[in-house]
Design a protein around this nucleic acid. Structure first.
Lengths: 107, 107
DNA sequence: AATATAATTCGACGATTGTCGAACTATCTT
DNA sequence: AAGATAGTTCGACAATCGTCGAATTATATT
């Protein structure tokens, strides 16, 4: 019997395990900050990676999304050929109160 | 006539020129985050560099204070042989609302 | 089955970063 | 004048980072 490859899945860390320094580090890059600001502008609607306007290669783009994911900021799921990502808004507001508002205030 | 050396002075950037990404970058290091948290705990009282408990050399310590200063987070002035530094609280609250509260919430 | 779309993975690279010891500068105390 | 104290500056080093093109994987469309 044919063993189909597993669908690519993404692991998301528990928010309680995320250090503030790691969040800051993730947000210290202008591209990544722009991604988060774009997601804020989308108001909860999930975006595909390449829906975010950035002048970087797709390899770099993929890397930045990974960093944001590992820092607990975004969550991603596969939908067809796309991977849709959204902000972990509720959890972020609980564990890092004021963070999203701060970022939004600078958008 | 004897030309006395100028007293060491520190330059502090205008807060309006500071990018959010630069602030995040400055706060992405655990040592620097600890420095800011210590300053928050001091509630406005200025601290000397070595009043902040850190297990790093004084060269590294000096470097971290410089990064925080360049990112607009702290201001430093020389007092005798010490250099006293404090948070730029008022300005930070104006330009980066919620930032200090966020950091304090994680101390 | 062949093509198109979306994104990841893999090296590779130059640049930046955090760290340190050693030497130096500035000030205060004795 | 001689020490003591507090920081800075200067290389140097390993580690991490942002970037890319090319190859790869997975899904959808034709």
């Amino acid at each position: 019997m044919r063993c189909y490859p597993a669908v690519k899945t993404y692991s998301h860390p528990a928010m309680a395990d995320i250090e503030l320094a790691a969040v800051m580090q993730a947000l210290s890059d202008p591209c990544r900050l722009a991604i988060v600001q774009e997601l804020l502008k989308a108001e909860g609607r999930a975006l595909a990676c390449n829906e975010v306007p950035l002048k970087i290669s797709k390899a770099t783009r993929s890397h930045h999304f990974e960093v944001l994911r590992d820092a607990g900021l975004i969550s991603t799921k596969v939908v067809g050929t796309k991977c849709m990502t959204s902000l972990r808004t509720t959890e972020l507001n609980k564990y890092f109160p004021g963070l999203l508002k701060l970022i939004a205030s600078r958008a």
